[in-house]
Simulated assay, not measured.
Amino acid sequence: MSTLKSHSKDSKLPALTPGKLRLYSMRFCPFAQRTRLVLAHKKIEFETVNVDLKSKPDWFLDRNPLGLVPVLEQDDKVLYESVITCDYLDDVYPDNKLNPSDPYQQARDRILFELYGKVVTNYYGTLRSQGKDKEVLENLWKSMEPFEKAIKERGTYFGGDKPTMIDYFIWPWFERMGVVSVMMPGVDLMPAEKFPNLTAWVEVMKSLPAVKETMFDTPTHVSFYKSYAAGKPNYDLGL
């Protein structure tokens, strides 16, 4: 049983099916999108239960006291946090492997991934400042430079000729880069002249089946962000 509309505080827990993998998610959450990307890439059968993160059901908090998505549940197993759930799926479902088999390369990928926290922080800083804080924007560009350099050296994807885990880990925020340009005309978070290789990577990523299956277009992201900024996030936008 998959549900699209979000479950709020007074809702009942949808019945669990023995052996069935379930993802607790929120349609517009970039962290949950990481897990959805891995599920789609690996063609894993699962069901989705979306959660109202402003009015969380007690049964959801029983599964993750932090109250965050994504959460995976299967029989007596419950896991949360996006990176943990993605690594777990890659280990348990070995087809279409995403983490490098070479321990050194996997470690190098994680070093690069650790730098991505600055990109996320500066992205949201730019949103909060409505693009008016030049220092925040310059900090964003500076934090993106290691990724521009890495993709130039590695090839089409961060995994070379095919996507690897880090491609999916960082994609959700690149999908949302266009939100700022629409809401704040004249502000470009990723100028092509500064980031030609990342710009090319974004276009290639858009063609991947897993990305097509999980992404929303920029106008939809803009509509959701406006509802979120107004304090009334529309988790069921478009349904």
Score class of each variant (00 low, 15 high):
residue 129 S to G: 09
residue 206 K to M: 15
residue 58 D to L: 09
residue 100 P to G: 05
residue 182 V to D: 08
residue 239 L to Q: 12
residue 78 V to S: 06
residue 190 M to E: 00
residue 212 K to P: 11
residue 178 G to E: 09
residue 113 F to G: 05
residue 216 F to G: 02
residue 119 V to F: 03
residue 229 A to C: 02
residue 51 V to Q: 04
residue 101 S to K: 10
residue 173 W to Q: 11
residue 5 K to I: 09
residue 85 T to E: 10
residue 37 L to N: 09
residue 143 S to A: 15
residue 131 G to F: 05
residue 94 P to L: 03
residue 144 M to R: 11
residue 103 P to Q: 00
residue 124 Y to G: 14
residue 45 E to C: 10
residue 231 G to S: 09
residue 190 M to N: 00
residue 96 N to T: 07
residue 89 L to A: 02
residue 51 V to T: 07
residue 72 L to M: 07
residue 209 P to I: 07
residue 100 P to F: 01
residue 83 V to T: 13
residue 15 A to I: 15
residue 132 K to R: 15
residue 154 R to I: 02
residue 20 K to P: 11
residue 18 P to M: 06
residue 175 E to M: 03
residue 93 Y to F: 15
residue 154 R to K: 13
residue 35 T to N: 14
residue 43 K to A: 15
residue 179 V to N: 05
residue 195 F to A: 08
residue 86 C to D: 12
residue 112 L to W: 09
residue 93 Y to N: 03
residue 33 Q to A: 13
residue 162 K to N: 04
residue 148 E to P: 13
residue 103 P to V: 01
residue 212 K to G: 05
residue 48 T to R: 12
residue 147 F to P: 14
residue 223 S to T: 08
residue 98 L to E: 01
residue 188 D to F: 12
residue 98 L to I: 00
residue 69 V to L: 02
residue 37 L to G: 07
residue 85 T to S: 10
residue 26 M to C: 09
residue 88 Y to C: 09
residue 169 F to I: 14
residue 218 T to W: 06
residue 139 N to D: 14
residue 175 E to L: 01
residue 198 L to Q: 09
residue 144 M to N: 11
residue 14 P to D: 02
residue 152 K to N: 12
residue 83 V to D: 15
residue 19 G to T: 01
residue 5 K to M: 10
residue 106 Q to D: 08
residue 129 S to H: 09
residue 225 Y to Q: 09
residue 222 V to W: 10
residue 204 V to C: 11
residue 102 D to K: 01
residue 69 V to N: 01
residue 148 E to A: 05
residue 223 S to N: 11
residue 169 F to Y: 07
residue 220 T to W: 01
residue 191 P to S: 02
residue 58 D to T: 14
residue 138 E to T: 11
residue 239 L to D: 07
residue 172 P to M: 00
residue 210 A to S: 13
residue 173 W to M: 10
residue 1 M to K: 13
residue 202 V to W: 03
residue 52 D to R: 01
residue 126 T to F: 11
residue 160 G to V: 02
residue 147 F to E: 08
residue 31 F to T: 06
residue 2 S to R: 14
residue 172 P to C: 02
residue 52 D to P: 03
residue 78 V to D: 08
residue 29 C to H: 07
residue 216 F to L: 07
residue 125 G to I: 05
residue 80 Y to S: 08
residue 45 E to L: 08
residue 171 W to F: 07
residue 112 L to G: 04
residue 157 Y to N: 00
residue 12 K to C: 12
residue 203 E to D: 12
residue 66 L to E: 14
residue 224 F to G: 11
residue 192 A to V: 14
residue 149 K to S: 13
residue 196 P to D: 04
residue 133 D to C: 08
residue 176 R to S: 13
residue 168 Y to M: 10
residue 227 S to F: 05
residue 127 L to N: 03
residue 7 H to T: 02
residue 120 V to I: 15
residue 118 K to P: 11
residue 130 Q to D: 04
residue 171 W to L: 08
residue 167 D to F: 08
residue 49 V to G: 05
residue 37 L to K: 03
residue 209 P to H: 04
residue 152 K to F: 06
residue 217 D to V: 02
residue 90 D to G: 11
residue 74 Q to H: 11
residue 81 E to N: 05
residue 104 Y to W: 13
residue 205 M to H: 09
residue 145 E to K: 12
residue 22 R to S: 11
residue 127 L to W: 09
residue 184 M to L: 15
residue 102 D to Q: 03
residue 74 Q to P: 08
residue 197 N to G: 06
residue 127 L to G: 04
residue 2 S to E: 12
residue 60 F to V: 00
residue 199 T to L: 06
residue 204 V to D: 08
